[in-house]
């Protein structure tokens, strides 16, 4: 009897729509038009000067996997952004030149093509802008780029590939960046998860537990305020109160780019699509599991110095935490099979 009354109330609420924490009115039914803001476009946006085509994807694919783009000839883009490990590296923080442990986690490349800012601190604006960064960084791939372009310009295989991809353009930082960016924005895409299928109307794509998790995600748990539609990011910067901000000289994050107090210890909101594949979590790799992530938010953070005002203790029950984790696992698209490319010698 009690259950029936509750169900009746829930149905009435569903029909009227629920206002989410980020101010949207949703009806939580598969395929409901109120949810279409969460659907990603079929393809990622690209700059006018770099329209994707087969030759550009092919060249970018080769460059992405070529370790000769690093100073020691042993690190490619795929070393830290490994497609088999969610386009990341499964390490808490990245390992750079000669396995030097770096300060921040390798971010996944999944769906970064949809974002308006790149890197944990947002210092690069798009994928083209970002591509040369790791090669040039002496703690990362540590490449002498003058030597790199000398070599590429003397390699018959690459000369033919560049000529096909960017006819009439030189082999330089611009064309190399454009090719890598094209590969990333056409390949590292997650937009066919159970959640996406549910959005498009497949009732069975998500379990009741996962739908409840989505309700919490946009409601009580306050997640969608930052992990916003459609790519689960607001392209913004927030201090999450991680324990690592409590050390003597913490990583200031975005503050180094924008010296505004709120940005001290703030890092970019990453996408959550394919999140199940990109453990460990946070920019410092401090959470091993999605449950640990949820528990961090439930506590409202560890270190309250300069904490994002959007953070507050959530009071989630164990069941609610499990629902949130189950929902995040509904954001995993079928695995993208990536073939190791035949590199020009």
């Amino acid at each position: 009897m009690m259950k029936q009354i509750l169900m009746g109330a829930a149905l009435a609420l569903a029909a009227a729509g629920t206002v989410s924490a980020e101010g949207q009115t949703y009806v939580f039914q598969a395929g409901h038009p109120s949810l279409k803001g969460w659907l990603l476009p079929k393809t990622a946006p690209y700059p006018e000067s770099n329209k994707p085509n087969a030759a550009r994807i092919d060249l970018g694919h080769k460059l992405f996997f070529d370790p000769r783009l690093s100073g020691d000839g042993n690190m490619s883009c795929a070393t830290c952004h490994n497609p088999s490990l969610g386009w990341s590296d499964a390490l808490p923080t990245a390992k750079g030149v000669k396995s030097m442990v770096l300060g921040r986690a390798s971010p996944t490349i999944i769906n970064t093509a949809f974002n308006t800012t790149q890197m944990w601190d947002g210092r690069k604006k798009d994928l083209e802008d970002q591509a040369m960064g790791p090669m040039e960084a002496n703690v990362e791939m540590n490449m002498d780029t003058a030597k790199l372009f000398q070599w590429l310009n003397s390699n018959d295989g690459y000369k033919a590939l560049f000529a096909k991809a960017y006819p009439g353009e030189p082999i330089d930082a611009s064309t190399l960046s454009k090719a890598i960016a094209t590969y990333e924005r056409t390949t590292a895409i997650s937009n066919n998860s159970p959640f996406d299928k549910w959005l498009k109307g497949d009732k069975r794509a998500m379990s009741a537990q996962q739908v409840n998790g989505f309700k919490l995600f946009v409601g009580k748990a306050n997640c969608a305020v930052c992990h916003a539609a459609p790519n689960f990011t607001d392209n913004g910067f927030h201090n999450l109160g991680l324990a690592s901000f409590g050390v003597a000289e913490p990583d200031m994050g975005r503050y180094a780019q924008k010296p505004i107090k709120l940005m001290k210890g703030a890092f970019k909101t990453p996408t959550l699509r394919d999140i199940e594949r990109t453990a460990p979590y946070f920019h410092d790799g401090s959470a091993k599991t999605l449950m640990q992530v949820v528990e961090h938010y439930d506590r409202g953070g560890e270190v309250t110095t300069n904490l994002s005002p959007n953070m507050k203790p959530l009071g989630l029950t164990q069941q609610e935490k499990e629902e949130l984790v189950a929902f995040m696992k509904a954001l995993t698209s079928p695995f993208i099979k990536v073939v190791a490319p035949d590199l020009p010698l």
């Binding site: 924490a21 980020e22 305020v225 505004i260 709120l262 959007n310």
Partner: peptide, 23 residues
């Protein structure tokens, strides 16, 4: 007018200010 926090700042020479965060 959003149900989450914003900030407003300028680092311009003409007028530099930081309004912090507000609800």
């Amino acid at each position: 007018s959003d149900p989450f926090f914003h900030n407003v700042f300028s680092l311009s020479d003409v007028k530099s200010f930081d309004l912090g965060s507000y609800a």
